[in-house]
Design a protein around this nucleic acid. Structure first.
Lengths: 213, 213
DNA sequence: CCTACCGATCGGTAGG
DNA sequence: CCTACCGATCGGTAGG
């Protein structure tokens, strides 16, 4: 079933559309990247829009593979759950930063089209997390001031955009003479710390190690 | 000196480029929006790239007007300074969300071109804030765990992207039957709360009211 | 998967 | 600020 040529086109289109946007990527650009003629690309994907949809769909399908690991994580305490969810989130997008850039671009370009996907793939996760956090609140494990309706969306936005902007903004955080890999790890560690600090009172110590280190 | 036609073109280009990106906006689109011919737009701005640069430049010039208010804020304590900076940041971008969308797009499309502007207009602010925060750390006013090299960039990214994504993601936070204006205020309030929680230990109470309310 | 081709639109110019 | 026009490129199709 694996169509090697189709996969190569998809990979090239993903890279180009993440870097330059859909409007900034022509079918000819994709064809050049895989050493084919434009008409051959259109044989595998009947239109530019079909190619774009296939790129986004591949990304969201991969995300759906990650999701169950989070929802079925059983009766974790709020802190362990946050670490698990944020860790998977950071791992997923930093493993391929094209994913983050593509999603940010789609959020800006076609919010209405992305909305049902968000409701379907992020909605259930949001509800489960909000429930767990609300239970944690009454047990004093979660900050009473936290706005549980906005916080998860904002933390998701933070991870997504921070990773999408890493190539553009990472230089501002890199101290001279430090290794690039270490700088990225510290960037992710600080993402996790912000999330924890926004959710948990200081009296609840971090129980779990940073999944990024 | 005010050129009304030029300003109208600039305003239309700002709106269109924020919504559809530079590559997704043609000179014809801009001309249609101001009821001119394409050649007339090119009389006021010699090329599409000159138009784009004028749009970005107008945005960054406005930001430069806000900046001194932050840097010259005198000997504020860390908490008051965070409230002032975050408040100005949120006010600036939420007053016109095109600004946030345009900047996010430029960060993705032309990071190398934006870098000198960032270093010039954000760099000094970052250094002053980092110094003030570091002083606050030794006085126990700032969390010792905070990574002061990454935190300011991440909080800036959070505000920028959260406001850019409001139109796309705000629906996830809006409870049914709530007024839209109140929902947006609560969104901004939670942004402020995340920033404060990431920076200050719980033992330091919030001294200043939310500048958003 | 290719060659050859289509009409539409692109950014930009000449000239008034 | 307009009309008229330029070559290049766009997404897409026919036909093999």
């Amino acid at each position: 079933m694996a169509d090697a040529t189709r996969d190569q086109i998809l990979a090239a289109a993903t890279r180009l559309m993440a870097a330059h946007g859909v409007a900034g990527t022509s079918i000819q650009d994709v064809a050049d990247a895989v050493s084919l003629r434009k008409a051959s690309v259109l044989y595998h994907f009947p239109s530019k829009d079909a190619l774009r949809k296939a790129v986004i769909d591949a990304l969201l399908t991969r995300w759906r593979d990650v999701l169950p690991r989070l929802l079925l994580a059983g009766d974790m305490d709020p802190e362990a759950r946050l670490d698990a969810v944020m860790g998977e989130f950071i791992t997923f997008f930093s493993a391929d930063t094209d994913r983050a850039r593509l999603l940010v671009r789609e959020l800006l370009d076609r919010p209405a089209e992305l909305e049902p996907y968000l409701v379907e793939t992020i909605g259930p996760w949001l509800r489960v997390i909000a429930l767990a956090l609300d239970a944690g609140k009454s047990r004093g494990l979660v900050r009473t001031g936290a706005d549980l309706r906005n916080l998860p969306v904002l933390l998701g936005t933070l991870v997504l955009s921070a990773i999408a902007a890493w190539d553009s903004l990472g230089f501002m955080a890199r101290e001279p003479g430090a290794d690039a890999e270490g700088a990225r790890t510290r960037y992710h560690t600080e993402l996790m710390r912000i999330a924890r600090a926004s959710l948990f009172p200081d009296s609840v110590p971090a129980l779990h190690r940073d999944p990024m280190t």
